[in-house]
Simulated scan of single mutants.
Amino acid sequence: MKLSLLVMAAPYASGGADSAWHYADAALALGHELSRVFFYDEGALNGTLSSVPPQDEGNRTERWAVLQQRSGCELILCIASALKRGMLDSTEAERYEQSGATIHPAFELGGLGLLVDASANSDRLITFGPG
């Protein structure tokens, strides 16, 4: 089964983002295809390059990056959600005359059209919210 995820939860604020990652990891272990993970609203914070969590909590951004390498799925940060949280790729950093990228290289910025595309081209789109 071809799956896509919508993550609207921040990485350390609730269990939503953790649940999304565990779901994706389990789905891959069962042989499902993970096509795209779209991070929207507070979920965009999952792709930040500047997060330095305590050693006993683990780096959730890096965990998504490892999952991306293993599965080949796209990790898309909603561009509007990311920009208003100060998260830029190198192109946007140059455009807004900032010193450099603030998103992890495994993540890409993209518009809501990619979420619509994920929904249309996957067997299931599973949503994980902040609650």
Rank of each mutant, 00 (worst) to 15 (best):
N46C: 15
R60M: 11
L75I: 05
L75K: 03
V37P: 03
F39N: 00
R36S: 10
R70L: 10
A29Q: 15
S90H: 09
Q69F: 05
L77D: 03
G72S: 06
D89Q: 02
T91H: 11
Q69P: 04
A10P: 06
S99Q: 13
A101K: 10
S14Q: 05
A65S: 14
Y23I: 07
R95Q: 13
D89M: 03
L34T: 04
E33K: 13
N46R: 05
I79R: 05
T102I: 12
G16T: 03
Q68N: 13
P53F: 09
A27H: 09
A29K: 14
G15T: 12
K84F: 02
L28V: 13
G15S: 15
H22K: 11
Q55A: 15
H22C: 10
S35D: 14
A80S: 13
Q68F: 06
C73K: 01
E42L: 09
H104K: 10
G86S: 04
A82Y: 04
T48E: 09
S35C: 14
S50Y: 14
E94C: 11
R70C: 05
N46V: 02
T61F: 02
L28M: 15
D89Y: 00
E42F: 09
A44F: 07
G58C: 04
R36T: 14
R63E: 07
C73D: 04
D41Q: 15
W21M: 09
A24R: 03
A17P: 02
T61H: 07
A26R: 08
F38N: 00
V52Y: 09
L34K: 00
Y23E: 06
E57Y: 11
Y96C: 02
E62K: 10
C73H: 06
M87I: 05
V66A: 13
L30P: 09
S99V: 09
Y40C: 06
G58N: 04
R85S: 06
I79K: 06
I76S: 01
A80H: 06
L45N: 00
Y96R: 11
Q69G: 15
W64P: 00
L30C: 14
L88P: 01
T61E: 07
L77Y: 01
W21A: 02
S19R: 13
S99Y: 08
R85A: 08
F38C: 06
R36V: 12
E57S: 14
L88T: 00
C73I: 03
